[in-house]
């Protein structure tokens, strides 16, 4: 601990000179070197682009007729828009259910009763440790098989239901850990003060901890929802009619334009995810600006606790 008064960081004297942790502000020699490096790297990057485009051209992937379907209204209205609708429908339903699941099990894991805490923890850790794909397979075909063998009636699980339930279980478990970390990130003094003024356990949680934790958790929650949106593409494997399925199975079957389809579909996914990520960044800035919360924004990658299978920020399972 230093007793020296903290001095404010010196105002940037010259804006054009920027030193980073790794590189000092460049002098004339270094600037020359950087210019040469810029030239070389530009040439290398252009060469890579040229090789890729040449390959596309050689296999005839740049022909206009392969790209033309994407400027036709019918392609969009028959395939791409319903596909986006399917993806968003699954992602939205999954997100809502996962948030509920996360709150329930996140709170359950913090319960004072051991008979709630331990089962909730086991469920969360189990679903976090297994791949989403095998969960989807089991939810898709497991319940009918089991019900049949036990002589019970069970309606067939649709691809949509299987996908949404699996997304809920997997992402809900990750969200449960985020919630727990968020609540734990509120300094202990806050709940101690709340108890001291006579609030009960539920009041402390509802009035003190949750409002402050929400601010801190928001960015982590939104990045997990990006993951969920991307994970919904796994619906391809059980033939759910999502963007990947309509755009990358049905369109190429019709027009034989696999490469252009892949590029267009990828761009749509990227646009959707970037929109969500910008929302996350905006929320993070906002939560940092309003200093109402005593809790620091939490980072998904550093979610502590028994969670041994932590998720990286935005690292999806698919």
């Amino acid at each position: 601990m230093s007793t020296v008064t903290e001095t404010k960081p010196a105002p940037p004297r010259a804006a054009k000179r920027q030193a980073s942790v790794l590189f000092d502000a460049p002098g004339p020699k270094a600037r020359m070197r950087h210019n040469i490096l810029t030239l070389i790297s530009a040439i290398v990057i252009l060469a890579i682009i040229y090789v890729v485009v040449a390959r596309f051209d050689k296999e005839g992937q740049l022909q206009g007729k392969l790209w033309k379907p994407f400027i036709e209204v019918s392609t969009w209205s028959d395939y791409i828009l319903p596909g986006i609708g399917g993806t968003l429908k699954a992602a939205l339903a999954g997100a809502v259910l996962a948030l509920l699941f996360g709150v329930l099990f996140g709170l359950g894991r913090m319960s004072d009763h051991r008979w709630i805490r331990i089962p909730a923890g086991a469920v969360v850790e189990f679903f976090r440790a297994i791949p989403l794909l095998i969960l989807i397979f089991f939810v898709f075909s497991g319940p009918p098989t089991i019900a049949n063998a036990l002589n019970r009636e069970f309606p067939e699980v649709t691809a949509f239901t299987a996908l949404v339930i699996s997304l809920m279980l997997y992402n809900g478990s990750v969200l449960a850990e985020i919630f727990r970390a968020g609540i734990n990130a509120v300094p202990r003094g806050q709940s101690e003060a709340a108890y001291a003024i006579g609030l009960r356990k539920s009041g402390v949680m509802r009035l003190i901890l949750i409002p402050q934790a929400t601010t801190a958790m928001m960015p982590a929650i939104v990045s997990q929802l990006v993951v969920l949106l991307k994970d919904s593409a796994l619906g391809w494997i059980i033939s759910y009619e999502d963007l990947l399925n309509t755009g990358y199975r049905q369109i190429p079957t019709q027009y034989g334009n696999l490469i252009p389809a892949a590029i267009v579909i990828a761009l749509i996914y990227i646009a959707m995810n970037l929109a969500l990520s910008y929302l996350a960044t905006w929320l993070e800035k906002r939560s940092r600006r309003s200093r109402k919360s005593a809790a620091k924004p939490i980072d998904v990658s550093t979610v502590p606790g028994a969670g041994l299978t932590g998720e990286a920020p935005g690292m999806p399972s698919a």
């Binding site: 990006v226 991307k230 593409a233 796994l234 892949a262 579909i265 990828a266 996914y269 990227i270």
Partner: peptide, 10 residues
Amino acid sequence: NTLRNTPLTL
């Protein structure tokens, strides 16, 4: 940004 926002399945 490209790879992070594209589904692995794709």
